[in-house]
Write a protein that binds this DNA or RNA. Structure first.
Lengths: 194, 194
DNA sequence: CCTACCGATCGGTAGG
DNA sequence: CCTACCGATCGGTAGG
């Protein structure tokens, strides 16, 4: 499982160059964060000066929101498909976890590492990111609703804990020791209570 | 349980004013992050201009490292004491989790929310933070080593997952619904497998 | 602790 | 896509 389908929006025109810039920007944002990435950084990777990028994009804010939402669209799509291939509620959960983990940990991931940057981002941007993320998390809400959990477990907390676990895996993950699938399996083992 | 003992280093001289500045800085760093907090912001809260702070501190970097390490010292101390009050390995784990969670979620927490800022920080600073954090995590390493876990569970992964869970709780936690102790209990329930 | 400033960097724009 | 620049902000310093 790799992350090769680029989660980038279809450009409106002159789109091939624009896509290239978006890919570069996504990679930089993912690696160095919103504030840690300057327009000049993006320009440098693209072989132009920072100011020249404004022919293709409206603003840094708008670019980030666009990339973030496109990444969540792609992630949601992959996860929904992975879930559909399973029948058992626990199998569905594991498929969803393995897919999200794969997205978060893929070495070429231009996707979600920026999902947790909320504090780094201007308020107007933050509101848009949170709205999209909340929608994304509904997939997991419905997944958790179907689990035969013991009544003592709080499902809302359970969902938050699981998502937090998956979304921050890149903080501690180092390639080589355990496979991503093995990690997903261990997480689901931990969360499996009935 | 509150977080009232300020985790701040003893000043060398003129220390009362210095302590005050450190408290203000810790609060701002915790709330807005390393890059999101300017020396001028800290000065404003302290009633002086940004440049005036340099009479009390050497640099922004050094201030952040100092606050971070002092916070970890205080956290480690509280956790070690909480563990010592318990005999059973699972009870020890729950005491440690409840304490760390309390530190991370205390509304007046000037402590660890900055523990996860690693990407926001200059490299030389990052290395120092990581070294101190690794030492902190040894407490949990020994805690996990004492648990009667099923052999299928990877203890290194288990520790990383647990710490990630506790350290990022502030991302989703909203006061009012579940108590911090209740959340800690649910986390330990999830992680309890034998 | 302030005034006054430094060199660097930022997002963004005008005008070609 | 570049040149040339804007106003703002940053960490930090000299000199008092």
């Amino acid at each position: 499982m790799t992350n090769s389908t680029a989660p980038l929006p279809a450009g409106d025109e002159g789109s091939s160059r624009r896509r290239q810039i978006c890919e570069i920007a996504a990679q930089l944002f993912a690696r160095k964060g919103y504030r840690g990435t300057s327009m000049r950084d993006i320009g440098e990777q693209a072989g132009v000066l920072g100011g020249s990028l404004y022919h293709h994009i409206k603003s840094k804010d708008a670019l980030f929101v666009e990339l973030h939402n496109a990444a969540l669209d792609a992630a949601e799509d992959r996860i929904v498909r992975a879930i559909a291939a399973q029948a058992d509620p626990w199998a569905k959960l594991e498929a969803a976890c393995a897919t999200l983990l794969d997205i978060q940990l893929a070495p070429d991931s231009l996707t979600l590492p920026m999902m947790n940057d909320f504090r780094e981002v201007p308020e107007t941007v933050r509101d848009q990111l949170i709205a999209r993320r909340d929608r994304f998390e509904r997939v997991f809400q419905s997944l958790v609703a179907q689990l035969p959990l013991p009544p003592a477990i709080d499902r809302s907390l359970y969902r938050n804990l699981l998502l937090s676990q998956l979304n921050h895996a890149a903080d501690w993950y180092r390639p080589g020791r355990l496979s991503i699938a093995a990690i997903a399996a261990q997480i689901v083992t931990l969360f499996r209570h009935e």
